[in-house]
Design a protein around this nucleic acid. Structure first.
Lengths: 214, 214
DNA sequence: TAGATTGTTAATCGATTAACAATC
DNA sequence: TAGATTGTTAATCGATTAACAATC
């Protein structure tokens, strides 16, 4: 790990580029310029060139980027050439929605197992994914080498569950609960908070409206 | 609108402060310092003081912030003192999850109606929320004065639906589809892309691991 | 008064964008 | 060769943080 450390902002955009390029590739496109990507994705072309240049000399002056070549590079770079198994905790409404979906657009992501405390659900499968009791969590995670858990449980149950998750050796949590998880520093948490996103959107709309008026 | 324009980064944190303060208030707390908020929320205390100072002189030197007073201010500032009605389009798994939830923790947000194309679902209600056909969309939106739509439909149906949504006069869209919506500049779109969030989380984990090794 | 804590100035950091020499 | 387009330098912007005078 010598050169390493690509800016966070860039990392967040890479999957966007990846997705766009795949669409492009399917449409039979051979080459693309940063300006064209820029127009499609509404990201400044200089930003795109800079982002891609962090990864190495992927473009050719006067030509642009070769679509197939760029996809190949990103696939490997983002680790999309191997399947990452994750687990889901909490098979309620939202959990079920994710189980049914199971990232079907994205072959390299897979929900390996789900967990719930409802006796009715334990032992069944949803979309081919088995539902277990939390009792079996640590063992399954260890055996299957799982590193990431998706958390879709009610706020009330979060604390004890997170403790169990952390103890099991999980290193990343995608958290849908609207509370800050108590985890040691080596565990990464990504929060998806629909309520907050909606509030923020509404706030900006109000601001727009006020700006109009004045 | 004179002073206006609070930084985006600040706006995103305000709901976080709000939520924390409410919890504090319920626990009977009367005052709080930026340092204490900082520790609870893991945000630099200077950032918190700066954020709050944008809103006006809400604190007292040597004392900190009065919890009740701060909540009162934020409630009004964020518009939490009146209900914002939104609509949801696409009553599939994810849509159903949101309908069942309906922001029950947040009294000022309400899903007013849902829309779907499935004849089986049209006419029924979920968690008290009626499901209509898209045919009725524009009229309902206009009559109820709705400004925000939550989009939880499959990628394939996005394009025509978005057209309809835009025509209806909706000004904000909370979009769960993993594609860029084609909307005029006066319509705000917030994207929530679970797949991308998960990919980014996994990428950072890999980076952490490599950093460990070296 | 002595101690605590804000609000803000100045420094720093990270990200975006303009502009253009290099070069395919 | 002429035209196109990268990769990068320099400028700019927005956000964070350190530090401290003001003051409750």
């Amino acid at each position: 790990m010598a050169e390493q450390q690509i800016p966070k902002a860039t990392v967040k955009r890479l999957p966007l580029y990846y997705r766009f390029l795949q669409r492009l590739y399917r449409s039979g496109r051979e080459r693309i310029s940063s300006l064209e990507i820029s127009e499609a994705l509404r990201i400044d072309s200089a930003t795109i060139r800079r982002d891609l240049s962090y990864l190495g000399g992927l473009g050719k002056k006067g030509y642009g980027y070769n679509v197939a070549h760029l996809i190949q590079f990103l696939t490997h770079y983002l680790g999309h050439d191997e399947v990452t198994n994750v687990v889901l905790i909490g098979a309620g409404n939202l959990g079920m929605a994710l189980l049914h979906h199971n990232f079907y657009m994205t072959k390299h992501l897979n929900i390996f197992a789900a967990f719930d405390k409802d006796e009715q659900k334990i032992g069944r499968t949803v979309n081919g994914i088995p539902i277990y009791a939390m009792h079996d969590f640590a063992e399954l995670v260890r055996k299957a080498g799982i590193e990431v858990a998706i958390l879709t449980i009610p706020v009330a149950s979060v604390e004890p569950v997170v403790e169990q998750v952390v103890e099991s050796g999980i290193r990343g949590i995608l958290n849908f609960s609207p509370i800050r998880l108590k985890v040691p520093p080596y565990v990464r948490v990504h929060n998806i908070d629909v309520t907050m996103e909606l509030q923020t959107l509404i706030y900006f709309l109000k601001q727009d409206a006020e700006y109009q008026e004045e």
